[in-house]
Design a binder for these strands. Sequence first.
DNA 1: TTTATTATTTTTGTATACATTTTTTATTAT
DNA 2: ATAATAAAAAATGTATACAAAAATAATAAA
Lengths: 205, 205
Amino acid sequence: MLETDRSRSATHQSYAVLRDRILNGELPGGTKIVEEKIASELGFSRTPIRESIRKLEYEGLIVNKRVVKPTEKDLRNNFQMRILLEGYAAQCAASFLPEKDLQALYECVEIGRKGTTEEIMDANERFHEIIVRASNNSVMIDTIDRMQSLIYLFRKTVVLNQRPHLIDEHEQIYEAIKARDGEKAADLMKRHLQADLDFCLHIIG
Amino acid sequence: MLETDRSRSATHQSYAVLRDRILNGELPGGTKIVEEKIASELGFSRTPIRESIRKLEYEGLIVNKRVVKPTEKDLRNNFQMRILLEGYAAQCAASFLPEKDLQALYECVEIGRKGTTEEIMDANERFHEIIVRASNNSVMIDTIDRMQSLIYLFRKTVVLNQRPHLIDEHEQIYEAIKARDGEKAADLMKRHLQADLDFCLHIIG
DNA sequence: TTTATTATTTTTGTATACATTTTTTATTAT
DNA sequence: ATAATAAAAAATGTATACAAAAATAATAAA
């Protein structure tokens, strides 16, 4: 259904719409966000709009009342965080990951080889999510969650060019986790993210 | 001056007051936070109070409309994050830290030995802050900033018992940074935070 | 007494109005 | 024409009112 979902709060609805409009480029970086304008556009009052804007500010999608225009530095900063957190998470995964999740991880690799672009993107996201959850650390999970939007925003420009070896790297990480080799899993994950960053930087540079 | 500061917004004022009341124990863990009650208490309307509450929720000081009661798990999660981020920051500091900051770092160590309890606490906080800033990564800096309140809340119970070797450890970290030994600085920082965590857990356990 | 069910009250969510601040535009002086 | 200032407009911050939802208390049935 495409009509607005009356079962959720106005705040939640407007947040979701705004967020999507930013992520899909409908509201490009630099766009001024004016409460009243958004409010009348979406058919809500300013009050819930205000709250969604605040939430988007916390996620870094809105800065100074404008849609963020992430810099190369932002990209580096976010990836450096991911390298630290997901590296650690991969190590945890090697120690703790239950069989069920291990299978799910492998499915992501398989879809990465055979799926449609859409499916591949989902699978990649899921691959990382499973590993992050293995950290069993809600602070980390929430932090990475908050960073997702910004990273996605950047990735859009990159995503159509499928990066070579991406799935191979995932498979290697999967193998290391399966073999319960924490050191190796962490190291591979860090290299994987670094390569991803380098690829992004190369494309936009 | 103790009277409310009219130069700042109601949102900012109420945020600061609420935050402090939570941190100093005036609003102990588990206390139900009711917008209307706080509003009339502080002499503002619900609108700005609502916003401050949201902000405190993002910081983790309010959960489900109640003042957070951090668990041992929360403590561990937060410290694990700090170990990763501040370990990395210490490494950066060894590479990049300007002379001026290096001196400031040493002053923190000195105050740690000679100062009053109040001064020591401030110096300890500053010591870590200088190193975190050396990461030159705003995402990291902001993340650690957001975690401070929760950590402080927990620390309150521990802070009166001065932990042995704390200042010695700071000095060692300072020395490693001064010697531009990134590996060592990171390693010492990680051990330092782990020791801090263990001490906290021991006290509350 | 305990458990369901229904009133009642409290609290939150949202709309609206107005006050304050910020931004833009117009005007004047250099 | 440029910079400084004043006037106007726009946008945000805050208060208040009411509607919806959630929590609590009261009542009835098992």
